[in-house]
């Protein structure tokens, strides 16, 4: 098994960010080649790391721990980045995506790398255990894809605001910093919200299913801080979703700001809670304190 650690891809993505920043100095095929090489190498290392972790835990990456879960989110973001950067050399999406990826990887360092207690209970029958796993898998998958949509929405909104500011201030398009038009950004952002909020809602609902199924083995309280705060974040998202659907042609800049506030709040809350859960917060989601050996 190839020995890969978080530092391998964290360093690669940092180089990619530096190369992305160098876009502002002008176009260079050498810079782009280095950027794609490091991006691809980082992505390969990232994939190997997740596979190794999954094999060690004998669980899919989404279930093995919060640490892996955040890394899966970063992995999806990098995959989207590499795809878009390869097909459009001028699109400056990396300047917005890579910092978020680095944030997720850095956050993964501080969260638990042990699997959720609900997956380790021994007093359940095999059939119950299998059903519980399926529910947890569904719960985690829906949430991860919902949050991937949140990240997309966040990135699009940031791009919208940068583009809007440029146009309002009548500034020249910075070389190597081409962004899509406001109309495109606005439309994609709308879709990101429309897709991610139902996914998050279903993710939350399946979470209740998990709680129900595991109740006799690991009692779950609705007063669990993680569940409560997620509930609040979801309510904010749902309100935003309802506003978006009921408002006829909302102004793009307003949608962008609301997306940033709502999605930013959700992302910070989610990552913050995972960090707290990993450092002793009394929660159903806590998987114990992190094992630093995961990094080396």
């Amino acid at each position: 098994m190839v020995n890969v650690n978080v530092i391998c891809f964290l360093a690669s993505y940092s180089v990619v960010l530096i190369m992305e920043l160098m876009r502002l100095l002008g176009r260079s095929p050498v810079r782009r080649t280095i950027m794609l090489l490091f991006g691809t190498a980082g992505f390969a290392a990232h994939t190997l790391y997740l596979m190794n972790r999954s094999n060690q835990a004998n669980l899919p990456p989404l279930l093995s721990s919060s640490h892996d879960w955040l890394l899966v989110l970063a992995w999806i973001s990098i995959l989207m980045y590499l795809f878009l950067t390869t097909i459009d050399r001028n699109l400056a999406i990396g300047l917005f995506v890579i910092p978020l990826v680095l944030f997720l990887i850095a956050a993964a360092y501080f969260v638990s790398d042990s699997s959720m207690p609900v997956l380790n209970v021994s007093n359940l029958r095999d059939a119950q255990q299998a059903a519980l796993r399926r529910w947890v898998m569904l719960h985690a998958s829906l949430l991860v894809f919902g949050i991937a949509g949140v990240i997309v929405g966040l990135v699009l909104s940031l791009m919208y605001l940068v583009q809007h500011r440029r146009l309002k201030h009548k500034q020249t398009m910075q070389r190597g910093l081409r962004l899509p038009s406001l109309a495109v950004l606005s439309r994609w952002n709308w879709w990101a919200v429309i897709i991610s909020v139902p996914l998050l809602t279903l993710g939350l609902a399946t979470g209740f299913g998990v709680a129900f199924l595991s109740d006799e083995a690991v009692p779950v309280s609705m007063a669990d801080p993680v569940i409560m705060i997620y509930g609040v974040a979801w309510a904010v998202m749902a309100a935003f979703f309802a506003w978006l659907l009921t408002t006829r042609r909302p102004a793009g800049k307003q949608v962008a700001w609301m997306t940033i506030w709502a999605f930013g709040f959700l992302l910070v809350t989610l990552v913050g809670l995972q960090v707290l859960a990993g450092s002793g917060l009394d929660s159903f989601h806590a998987g114990g304190t992190r094992d630093s050996s995961g990094l080396v």
Binding site: L167, M173, P180, S181, V184
Partner: peptide
């Protein structure tokens, strides 16, 4: 090219 197409996509 620089301003109009950055506002509208079509």
């Amino acid at each position: 090219g620089e301003f109009g197409k950055s506002i509208f996509d079509r």
